[in-house]
């Protein structure tokens, strides 16, 4: 038997929770309403003060700096970040000088040194978006939290200096996906500045570390990577050989083509597929007969890549596909018919 008093007790407790949640819900709504209004007013004041300061050309009013300094931290951050997206060159330098006067950079630096990763992330995010050069962010590239490392890498994209490269290449094979993605993206955004360091990196690394670099190099497409790519086609890991094949296909050239043809006999199907795909990308018609042989490959991926490669070569490739379509080897004829878009009855 349930004691009625227990039920009453439980019910009153539940009712109290309900009333409490009702109060919080509506009080929070009111607070949001008023704080939004206040923030909107302060943001408008801050924008005007900042606009006057940026427009002042050396004759800046300390009162405007005072207005910016007095703003609540979140509003201050909003005011600077929203305008920073639209400024470059001299305007950006002036904005950063004003931000320095308000003490906002000092606060961000303090946050970057915090023991809590959430504060470090916030500090790094602000400095990165303001494109503020600071040695403390370079240190954050070695942070223990991947989100902070990723944020520091985002900042690094705009700072192509030797010490930053060293740190970034050290993170190229980061086991954490988030920071690895950010590092690769940062190096790609650095463009030509990153080419030489990446070529050196490829010369000095092998295995998984090299694979990450090869993928990146394939997106950059520079002939300087060819020697390293050729040497990596002999790597023990199939993933590295496949990445090297893709890079060779992207860059092109006689030396690359010759090595790619050799890779059509690689023991790993993914490497054979990557080599066939790369030859198709180069439209290397002299490799046509070798590609036609791959149509009989026991794995689907190389067969498909070879068929597509032959199709992209044009006339000679289509001729070889037509021959393969009547081949006694069923899988070769199937893939050739598929590539030629011919019905099976045409066999």
């Amino acid at each position: 038997m349930i004691d009625q008093r227990v039920l009453e007790l439980v019910m009153w407790a539940e009712l109290s929770l309900l009333v409490l949640s009702l109060a919080v819900f509506f009080v929070h709504g009111l607070w949001l309403y008023f704080s939004d209004k206040r923030d909107a007013r302060l943001t408008a004041e801050g924008r005007q003060a900042l606009a006057r300061l940026l427009d002042g050309e050396g004759t800046q009013s300390p009162a405007d700096v005072g207005i910016l300094r007095a703003l609540p931290r979140d509003v201050q951050t909003t005011v600077f970040l929203e305008i920073s997206k639209n400024l470059t060159g001299g305007g950006r330098r002036e904005l950063n000088r004003i931000a320095g006067l308000t003490g906002i950079f000092d606060r961000a630096r303090d946050m970057c040194g915090s023991r809590r990763w959430t504060r470090r992330l916030k500090g790094a995010r602000f400095l990165a978006q303001m494109e503020q050069s600071d040695v403390i962010i370079t240190k954050l590239l070695r942070d223990s939290h991947p989100a902070v490392r990723a944020q520091a890498a985002e900042w690094a994209a705009a700072h192509p200096v030797p010490e930053v490269f060293d740190e970034l290449f050290g993170l190229l094979a980061d086991p954490e996906t988030l920071s690895r993605f950010a590092v690769q993206d940062a190096l790609l955004r650095m463009g030509r500045d990153a080419v030489e360091p990446l070529a050196r990196y490829l010369e000095n690394h092998s295995g998984q570390a090299a694979a990450a670099g090869l993928h990146l190099a394939a997106a950059m497409v520079e002939p300087v990577f060819i020697p390293a790519a050729i040497s990596h086609t002999l790597d023990g890991l199939p993933e590295v050989r496949a990445a090297a094949a893709s890079l060779l296909g992207a860059v092109g050239g006689a030396e690359a083509a010759s090595r790619l043809v050799d890779l059509l006999d690689d023991p790993d199907p993914d490497v054979r597929a990557a080599a066939a795909f790369a030859l198709g990308r180069m439209r290397h018609w002299p490799a046509g007969s070798r590609l036609a042989a791959v149509l009989e490959d026991s794995s689907w991926a190389p067969r498909r890549a070879a068929a597509l490669a032959l199709r992209s070569i044009g006339g000679p490739g289509v001729l070889l596909l037509r021959r393969a379509a009547v081949s006694p080897v069923q899988r070769a004829s199937d893939i050739a018919l598929l590539a030629l878009d011919m019905p099976a009855a045409a066999r």
């Binding site: 039920l7 439980v10 019910m11 539940e14 009712l15 929770l17 309900l18 949640s21 009702l22 819900f25």
Partner: peptide, 11 residues
């Protein structure tokens, strides 16, 4: 009692 806690949690 049976439904009260559920309602509070939804709130």
């Amino acid at each position: 009692t049976a439904y009260g806690l559920g309602t509070a949690l939804t709130a």
